[in-house]
């Protein structure tokens, strides 16, 4: 088969289909992974003893568990306990947990780096604890956590390929299927790799732009 024809008729359409699934997984998981990461970080830093402990235990569990194993437990294990998810939902839950756990560590570090006095000053003005966290500490912490969260997002792009193990034909899986069928391993996998590289580059550039846009004037001398 002619290389150009193979590309146009087989490889590109298949990879595009896979890419759409990959993007769906990422776009669906990232916002929840971010939000849950914030909740975990705030809970651990400012929560009571129990809240703090629970957040910490959750993060420790996720950090200690290989993501693939987590996905297997969600998809293959839970049905025997009477809970079944579609492959997509199982993958989403796994990705959200993983993304959130690591995000929370970056955000927690950033929360601790915001000077304590601002929290005190906010409360001295009559703000509740929650208001002080939400309006004063968190906005500053999140700015500082942007590089870490970006990193985690990049990991998410790449580990989304594990969804293939739950029968989801995302980008890597689509590549694998085409490559095996047509014996075009090198062409296909280079193409797949190039697409991931583009995704990661877009992420990096966007994150840089966001970081610059939200930077607080006078504090950029880093």
């Amino acid at each position: 088969m002619d290389t150009m024809l193979f590309m146009a008729d087989v490889l590109v359409p298949a990879l595009l289909q896979g890419l759409v699934i990959t993007l769906e997984l990422i776009v669906a998981a990232a916002p929840f992974g971010f939000a849950l990461g914030v909740v975990l970080a705030v809970g651990r830093t400012y929560g009571g003893r129990l809240t703090s402990y629970l957040c910490r235990a959750f993060v420790a569990f996720i950090k200690g568990c290989p993501l693939l194993l987590l996905l297997f437990m969600l998809y293959f294990g839970l049905p025997s306990a009477g809970i079944s998810f579609s492959p997509f939902v199982a993958a989403m839950i796994g990705f959200i947990c993983c993304n959130a756990a690591y995000n929370s560590e970056y955000i927690r570090g950033a929360l601790l780096s915001v000077k304590d006095g601002q929290m005190i000053a906010a409360q001295a003005l009559g703000m509740t604890r929650l208001q002080s966290i939400w309006l004063i500490v968190l906005p500053q912490a999140l700015r500082r956590a942007i590089p870490g969260i970006t990193n985690e997002f990049i990991y998410l792009i790449k580990y989304s390929s594990l969804a293939y193990m739950l029968t989801i034909i995302e980008l890597s899986g689509a590549g694998k299927i085409v490559a095996t069928k047509y014996f075009t391993y090198n062409e296909t996998f280079m193409m797949v790799g190039a697409i991931y590289l583009v995704l990661v580059t877009i992420t990096t550039v966007s994150a840089d732009m966001i970081e610059k846009k939200v930077a607080v004037p006078g504090t950029t001398g880093r």
């Binding site: 006095g117 005190i120 000053a121 003005l125 009559g126 309006l135 004063i136 607080v216 504090t219």
Partner: peptide, 29 residues
Amino acid sequence: NYFRQKMGMVFQNFYLFDHLTAVRNVEIA
């Protein structure tokens, strides 16, 4: 929180909110 509004406090190290302009610092509460 009501009483704290009625007792303005000024600290040795200012403790301005670093991510807000001067006017935002004053108006946020």
